[in-house]
C-alpha cells in the first residue's frame, strides 16, 4: 500500500513541478491526437454529412459499415497498418514504422468512423426545414450545406470530441506503430504501460491523472455540446 501512496505523492509533485519528461510525453500525445482528429474530421464530417443528406444505392449498408467500424479494436488497426508499413510491407520503403506519422495514420483510421458515424447521426437529427429554408432564401448548394452544418454545429462538435477522446486514450495503435520511443513516439498511454512494467509508479500515476483529467474534460465538453444541441 505504501508504494501506491508514495507513487501518488511523487506523481502530484511531478504534476505541480511540470516534470520535463512528463511534459514531453503529454506533448507527444496532444500533438499526435490533435493531428489525427483534424484529419479524421476533414474526412469524416463531409462523409457523414453526405451519407445523411443524399439517397444512393447501398446507403443502408454504408451506415451499417460505419457503425460497425466504430467498434474497431485498436490492435486490429495496429496490425493492419503494421502489415502495410513494416519493412516487408507494400509501403515499407516510406520508413513510417515507429514514427509519429505511423501513429497518426492509425489514430486517424480509428477516429474516422467515429467522427463519420456520429456526424451522420448529427446531420440526420437536424431539422428537415433547414434545407428548405436555405433554398427559399436563395442559397446555392454550398451555402445550403453551410446552413445545415451551422445548425448542427454542436452535435458535430460532440462527434469530433468523441473521436478525440477515443484516440487520446488508445494504447494499441500507439504501441504497435509508434514503438514507445522516448521523446519521439512515447505518449501518455504507452508511457503508463511502460512505467508500470518497470515498477515506476510515480510517472505512471501522474500520466494516469492527466489522462483522467483530459477524459473528464472531454466528457464535460461532450455533454455541454449534447445539451446545446437540444
Amino acid at each position: 500500500m505504501d508504494y501506491i501512496l508514495e507513487g501518488l505523492g511523487n506523481a502530484l509533485k511531478m504534476i505541480v513541478s511540470l516534470d520535463s519528461e512528463m511534459a514531453e510525453i503529454v506533448f507527444v500525445s496532444v500533438k499526435i491526437s490533435t493531428i489525427s482528429i483534424i484529419l479524421a474530421t476533414l474526412a469524416g464530417v463531409p462523409l457523414g454529412f453526405y451519407v445523411a443528406i443524399r439517397d444512393f444505392w447501398g446507403k443502408r449498408a454504408a451506415i451499417t459499415i460505419l457503425n460497425t467500424l466504430m467498434a474497431l479494436p485498436t490492435v486490429v488497426i495496429g496490425l493492419l497498418i503494421y502489415s502495410f508499413i513494416s519493412r516487408r510491407g507494400p509501403l515499407g520503403v516510406l520508413g513510417l514504422l515507429y514514427t509519429p506519422w505511423a501513429m497518426i495514420i492509425g489514430q486517424t483510421i480509428l477516429a474516422f468512423p467515429i467522427v463519420a458515424a456520429l456526424s451522420l447521426s448529427a446531420t440526420q437529427g437536424i431539422d428537415k426545414r433547414v434545407e428548405k429554408t436555405a433554398l427559399t432564401l436563395g442559397a446555392n448548394n454550398l451555402q445550403t450545406a453551410l446552413f445545415i452544418l451551422m445548425e448542427g454545429k454542436f452535435a458535430l462538435f460532440s462527434a469530433i470530441i468523441a473521436g478525440f477522446g477515443r484516440v487520446f486514450a488508445e494504447v494499441g495503435v500507439s504501441m504497435m506503430l509508434g514503438g514507445n520511443i522516448r521523446g519521439f513516439t512515447r505518449n501518455i498511454t504507452t508511457a503508463i504501460a511502460f512505467e508500470t512494467g518497470k515498477g515506476e509508479f510515480a510517472l505512471g500515476i501522474a500520466l494516469g491523472m492527466i489522462l483522467l483529467t483530459v477524459a473528464f474534460s472531454i466528457n464535460i465538453l461532450f455533454h455541454y455540446f449534447q445539451k446545446k444541441r437540444m
Binding site: 431539422d127 426545414r129 433547414v130 428548405k132 429554408t133 427559399t136 432564401l137 436563395g138 446552413f147 451551422m150 445548425e151
Partner: peptide, 12 residues
C-alpha cells in the same frame, strides 16, 4: 422569389 413556410424555421 421566396417562400414563408406553414411552420417557419428560424435559425438558432
Amino acid at each position: 422569389m421566396t417562400m414563408v413556410m406553414e411552420n417557419p424555421f428560424l435559425f438558432h
